[in-house]
Simulated assay, not measured.
Amino acid sequence: MHIRLYTKMNCPLCDKAKAILTELQADYRFTMEEIDIYQDDALLEQYQLMIPVVELDGEEIGYGMIEKEVVRKRLRQARNG
């Protein structure tokens, strides 16, 4: 499983989302890639008002206020196929 976390600098919600994902890595095996939307104009246009955005294996599973239990449920579903 692979998670992409779309973030930006000085974003408390992004920091919280990263902390949640880091905690969940203890229970679920996944790689995490953090992407700064300000490094790509297309990403900036797409996600500017939604940050942070969590994407699991190419599917957007949450944005803004990231809920740990929502992400946990999606990771469990992905793991169990």
Rank of each mutant, 00 (worst) to 15 (best):
P52M: 09
M1H: 11
E23S: 13
L49Q: 12
E67D: 12
Q48L: 14
M32A: 04
E23C: 11
R72W: 10
G64F: 00
A19L: 11
G81H: 04
E69T: 12
I66L: 10
L75H: 05
G58L: 03
L24Y: 02
L56G: 06
V71W: 10
R72N: 05
E45T: 10
G81L: 06
A42L: 04
A78N: 15
T7D: 07
L49R: 03
E60K: 15
K73R: 15
Q77R: 14
R76F: 13
T7Y: 00
D40H: 00
D41E: 15
E33C: 06
M9K: 11
G64W: 03
E23Y: 00
Y38E: 13
A17I: 06
V71E: 03
M9Q: 10
R74M: 15
E55W: 00
T31S: 05
G64I: 08
K68R: 15
M9P: 05
E69L: 13
D57S: 08
R76E: 15
R29H: 11
I3L: 14
N80F: 07
E34V: 14
A78F: 03
K16L: 12
K18R: 10
P52S: 06
D40K: 05
A42S: 10
T7F: 03
L13C: 01
L75F: 08
E59N: 08
K8S: 09
I37N: 12
L44W: 03
M65D: 15
E23R: 14
I51M: 04
L24N: 02
L43W: 10
Q25N: 14
M32P: 09
R29W: 01
F30G: 01
L24E: 02
M32V: 12
E33R: 07
M9H: 09
L56A: 03
M1D: 13
R76V: 01
E55F: 05
K73L: 09
E60C: 11
I3E: 03
E60W: 02
K68L: 14
I51D: 02
L13G: 02
C14W: 01
E33N: 06
C14Q: 08
G58C: 04
Q48A: 14
P12G: 01
Q46P: 06
L5A: 06
I61S: 05
I37M: 12
Y38M: 13
D36C: 05
P52E: 09
P12H: 07
K68P: 00
E33G: 06
D15E: 13
P12T: 10
L75M: 00
L44G: 12
I66Q: 01
K16Q: 15
V54R: 00
L49H: 12
H2G: 03
A78Q: 11
P12A: 05
E59P: 00
Y28I: 07
R72S: 15
D15G: 02
E45M: 13
R76N: 09
E55V: 15
G62Y: 08
P12K: 01
L5V: 07
V54K: 00
L49K: 11
L49A: 10
